[in-house]
Write a protein that binds this DNA or RNA. Structure first.
Lengths: 117, 117
DNA sequence: TACTATACTAACCAAAAAGAAAGTAATGCG
DNA sequence: CGCATTACTTTCTTTTTGGTTAGTATAGTA
């Protein structure tokens, strides 16, 4: 739970007010989110598959970040009423519009960021 | 100091290996960086001016994030041997090439991200 | 001598993010 | 009944990030 009385919290709000980019970063930040979007885009729609693609991520983190992406309207979560359960994640239109921008950013990174040794 | 033996650390490395975007996010992450780039771009080249523009940031954070931006080659730090000291920050070419991409991201955010109430 | 200005650094503490490990739920199968 | 399957949740601990406060350096001015 976020502590809404902290300077940390109010600083973030104040910053968002002067720098709207901050909200974008809030949505795309979080360690696994961009990779998740990428893998879902690649066709790995299920929890288990995503975990196989990223063997390091814990179920807690996967679950949490998928939830945030869903809340931010970037992925859609479809539940099949089966047993064992089946849930499929897919990119929303909103996320589709983001892809080309991320691609530009990716290309910038390729050209200008040295991968740390 | 970063603890290089933690899972946290090795996860980040593993992630960067499968998702090069992670390196981009590492460079642009950190609470104040994008705002800093923006203000420097706007012509606020000095430590004190930047602090005036962002009254919440502490000297420690300002100093730290400027240092990281410099290390990542996004800003240039020019020291004038005067007293009282004068230091001027400016965007590098690398940062200039990033601006249009950030602008696209900004526009995407404007259109698609609801500012939290 | 005391005080100003500027651009910081250092030591310590609070808060947030991430990881580890165990547990839940519902159904079908042997 | 006991186990497998899938997609999680919960609690607790570690790691990282950010904030608070005090202090440094150097020359000029009152």
């Amino acid at each position: 739970m976020r502590k809404t009385t902290s300077t940390n919290f109010s600083n973030e709000e104040a910053l968002a007010a002067i720098c709207p980019m901050h909200n974008v970063m809030r949505v795309l930040g979080g360690r696994w989110k961009i990779a998740l979007l990428y893998f879902i885009y690649q066709g790995h729609h299920r929890f288990g598959l995503l975990q196989k693609k990223m063997p390091f991520i814990t179920t807690k983190m996967l679950s949490a970040q998928l939830k945030e992406l869903e809340q931010d309207g970037l992925i859609h979560r479809k539940i099949y009423a089966e047993m064992p359960p089946r849930v499929e994640y897919s990119l929303t239109e909103k996320a589709q519009t983001l892809l080309p921008v991320l691609e530009d950013l990716y290309n910038w990174g390729e050209r200008y960021i040295a991968v740390p040794a």
